[in-house]
């Protein structure tokens, strides 16, 4: 069922929804950007429609609502410990198609990998309903169509905001009541069919090609360009890596927490064990590890789709202007070169 709401009705709808849901949406944090007088858009709880940023891609991804940058796992007192509490009220998460598709990737890792279901992911994820927001085709870093993430399936509501209010479609009946008395409309969501940016992912099914790619000189470019800051992975819709960190409170060392803190394979020390040398010790090695994860390894393990959803946030947030799509294209060239040389009877690895 579709609806068309004016601004007052939109506010009324959010009021009704807020009685039962914590509503999260992209929100503008003025002047909180990396550079002076630049804003940041990230997910936060919202109360009114004007807080929702619908015409610009968020700098940080929707995943933060479900798997936040930091979260407590256990609380420790002197000789006891207890699990952190879960929030009770369900969440309505307004997100773009890429963000919603990204949850399929998060689910594979947090809920399925190795047959272990991560309690901390699961208990939030179970409480989340998605409202897909029309993104109007995104910006020049988006390549969701190439990554097949432009048409999410798992959503309860579809929203299209504009200056005149909101058009909505209800696809999950449990939301029907909130629209009682709202003007109906034949709105159905449309999803972007083509991005300005298109990415072709090279075929990496051949092991010899992959091994040759790992030692290909293309990665050396990043030793000079990439500063290993990890902005790309923190901003990534699909990165899931974290580190478990125990802390004690400054004022009372007897009590503390075990926390989960976002980690990045781009930051030095990600693979370093106590007392040992780092394995991937150059920015180029780390870049190669990230790119192959996004465009080969994840799919090789889980089968269904590549990890990257083409949201472009990594490109958007990189302070050194390293574009993921350009990097994949460079990788495609390297793979062509490797395949040609292998076909030529060129040197196999090892």
């Amino acid at each position: 069922m579709g609806y068309s709401l004016n601004p007052d009705q939109t506010a009324e709808l959010l009021n009704r929804l807020a009685e039962d849901y914590r509503i999260y949406a992209p929100k503008r944090f003025p002047k909180q950007g990396r550079y002076s007088d630049t804003d940041i858009i990230r997910y936060d709880r919202i109360q009114t429609p004007d807080e929702i940023v619908w015409d610009q891609k968020s700098d940080y991804p929707a995943k933060e609502v479900i798997s936040p940058i930091q979260q407590a796992l256990f609380y420790f007192t002197e000789d006891e410990y207890r699990e952190s509490k879960k929030a009770k009220k369900p969440v309505l998460l307004l997100a773009r198609p890429c963000d919603i598709t990204a949850q399929l990737v998060q689910e594979k890792i947090y809920a399925e990998n190795g047959g272990f279901k991560d309690l901390y992911y699961d208990r939030v994820h179970n409480k989340v309903k998605f409202a897909v927001m029309d993104c109007g085709g995104g910006d020049d870093t988006c390549f969701c169509v190439s990554m097949g993430s432009n048409k999410p399936e798992n959503y309860s509501l579809a929203f299209k905001f504009d200056e005149n209010g909101l058009k909505a479609e209800v696809s999950d009946d449990c939301f029907a009541d909130y629209f009682d008395g709202m003007p109906e409309d034949d709105f159905t969501p449309e999803f972007v069919e083509e991005n300005e940016l298109k990415v072709t992912i090279p075929d990496l099914s051949d092991r010899d090609v992959r091994l040759a790619l790992k030692s290909h000189p293309m990665w050396k470019e990043f030793d000079k360009r990439c500063i290993s800051c990890g902005s790309c992975t923190v901003a990534c819709s699909t990165c899931t890596c974290f580190t478990t960190r125990d802390i004690c409170y400054g004022d009372n060392p007897e009590v503390g927490e075990r926390r989960r803190v976002t980690a990045s394979c781009q930051v030095a020390g990600f693979d370093q064990m106590a007392g040992q040398r780092e394995i991937r010790s150059t920015a180029g090695d780390r870049m190669r590890y990230k790119i192959l994860h996004k465009f080969h390894d994840h799919k090789a393990r889980f089968g269904d789709r590549h990890m990257c959803v083409g949201c472009g946030r990594c490109t958007h947030m990189c302070p050194e202007f390293i574009s993921i799509s350009a990097t994949v294209n460079k990788m495609a060239d390297a793979v062509d070169e490797i395949k040609a040389s292998l076909a030529d009877g060129g040197n196999h690895v090892e």
Partner: peptide, 24 residues
């Protein structure tokens, strides 16, 4: 293999080599 591990249950990503999780 000995690799950096944080979760041991295939979630944290530290031990991953390609599509392989050393912990799993």
């Amino acid at each position: 293999f000995e690799r950096k591990m944080s979760c041991a249950i295939g979630k944290c990503g530290h031990c991953r080599i390609d599509e392989t999780y050393v912990c799993l």
